[in-house]
Each structure stands twice: as C-alpha cells, then as structure tokens.
C-alpha cells in the first residue's frame, strides 16, 4: 500500500467530514499529525485557482458529505422530519452523521442505526420520544421493501380448516412483515403526513402497527392489542390454536370482541398477503 496515498486519503477525509467545516478539519488533521511534513496551510495540499481557494475547493466535498447523507435520512424518515421541522431534523442528522460515521458500502444502510441513536439521546424530550416510534416504523417500511416477495396463500386455504384442527395448523407469515408495539399513536400522524395535513402531535398512548410488503406495494396498518398479540405469536411459530389462546389470555384482552372478529381478521390478513403457507402438523 502506498503510504503517501494512505496519508492523503486520511487527511482529506478528516477535513471534509469534520462537523466544524474545512478550516476546523484542517486544524484537527494538523493537531492529529495527519498532514505531510511542512504543511502550513491548505494551499500546500490543494492548489488554489483563480476562482476558488483551497478551502473552497475542499468545501465542495465537505458540503456534499453532510448534504448527501442528510438527504438519505430525509428520504427514509419523512415523518420524523415533519415532526421535528427541517431545521431541528437537519441539526440532528448532522450530529448523527458525525457520531455514527458510515461503515457500510451502501447509502441504503446508512440510516439503519438512526432509531437506536435517537433513543440514546431522547431523554424526556416528548418530541424525540415520538420520533423514535415514527423512525422504527419508517425504517421497517424500508426493510420490508427488500425482503423476498412471496406468493401468498388464498383465503380459501384457511376456510377449509375446521376449528377442531386449529391447534394443529401453523400459518407461516411472510418475511416482509414486521410488528410493533409503540408508546404513541403513530398511525393518524403518519396518515396526516401522507395527506400533507398534519393535525398536531398526539399525546402518548399505546398503539400497535403492522408493516408489510407484497408484490403490490408496501403498507402500514394499525392493529388492535389483540390482533398484535395474535400475529406476534404466529410470527414466532405458534400454531393457530396456540396463538389464539395466547392472545385471549393476554392481560387486558377483550376476548368477546376478539372471538367475534377472528374470522374477519384472518380474511383481511390473508387477502393482504401476510401468509405464505398453511402447514398442517402431522
């Protein structure tokens, strides 16, 4: 490996990714001993031209570094940006980029740690607390997009199963499905974002959400507590009977409503394509 090239790449990346800008990056590189011997100014590294100084040329890359990744985060977390406003989101994004420098080859994964990073700094800030929930769901919408698109089972395949066999039936959920138990009612807010019609920030209140993707597109649907419990058990590999029992015995479950709704729920979920197989055990 050519040492001179290594050194050049190291000082340049240090300068153009410094959160304080090019001059601060140069000072940092200098104090860290990254610059070639005898370097006293940026002009020693990058020749100025008749239009731009050395610093201005480096600034083109420095600006692009934060701007490009912030744009990616804006694209992945549009509801979070609308919640926080562009200025606060931009400031948070800059901090995130600085504290979590990208180690991945693809911009598509740069924003993966954003939710957990928000969680570390949220404290008792109610807006950030809500932003965490939004970011979890928006991240999931990206992740299910890349899961294998699978052919769903037809509702008729479920209809033929008699109730006395439910404890011997496993419904295999698609990979492109994620379930969430959240501290805030995100659905109305995110619907408002999609309509461009925001109606304030809701108070904390538990909510449950399913995010999934099929060949037709990617979706987010609100769930009841019982629906979430039921689907969670199915995702974990429980039989249909076990899942129903687990949901019905969950603390706070509205069992009569659940039993009355079961048929419609499974019809809806099957028609949405949430199941890829019906497995009859022995």
């Amino acid at each position: 490996m050519p040492e001179g090239l290594r050194a050049l790449e190291t000082w340049m990346l240090r300068i153009v990714t410094h959160p304080g800008g090019v001059d601060a990056g140069f000072e940092a590189a200098q104090s860290e001993g990254l610059l070639p011997a005898g370097t006293s100014s940026l002009d020693d590294l990058v020749p100025p031209n008749d239009r731009l100084s050395a610093g201005e040329q480096l600034h083109v890359y420095a600006f692009a570094y934060f701007d490009r990744i912030t744009d990616v985060l804006r694209g992945e977390y549009p509801s979070v940006e609308l919640l926080l406003g562009p200025a606060r989101f931009g400031s948070l994004a800059r901090d995130f980029i600085t504290e979590q420098p990208s180690r991945t080859y693809t911009l598509n994964r740069v924003g993966v740690p954003f939710s957990s990073w928000l969680a570390e700094r949220a404290g008792d800030d109610p807006l950030l607390s809500f932003a965490i929930d939004l970011s979890l769901v928006e991240r999931a919408l990206d992740e299910v997009w890349d899961c294998k698109a699978e052919a769903p089972v037809a509702y008729e395949a479920l209809q033929v199963i008699p109730p006395d066999r439910w404890d011997r039936v496993r419904l295999d959920t698609i990979d492109a499905l994620q379930l969430f138990e959240l501290r805030h009612p995100i659905s109305a807010f995110m619907n408002g974002v999609m309509r461009g019609d925001l109606d304030g920030v809701p108070e904390p209140e538990p909510s449950w959400v399913c995010v999934y993707c099929t060949l037709a597109g990617r979706y987010r649907i609100p769930l009841s507590f019982e629906q979430h419990a039921l689907l969670s058990s199915l995702v974990d590999g429980a039989t249909l009977g076990e899942a129903i029992e687990a949901a019905a015995t969950s603390e706070g479950a509205d069992v009569p409503a659940m039993l009355a709704g079961l048929g419609g729920w499974f019809r809806d979920w099957t028609e949405r394509g949430l199941f890829r197989a019906v497995e009859l055990l022995d």
Partner: peptide, 25 residues
Amino acid sequence: CWTGVGSHNGHDLYPVPYTEASLRH
C-alpha cells in the same frame, strides 16, 4: 475514485491524486 478510508465511507467520489504510486496501486 475512492469513497472512504479507515472503514469510514464518505459516500462520495473523491479524487485520486494522479501520481505514479496511485497509478500502480
């Protein structure tokens, strides 16, 4: 170009210095 060093990816197309050493590399 190069896009990063030391496992830090800048996600940009950074210029290569046009030297004999970089050429061999």
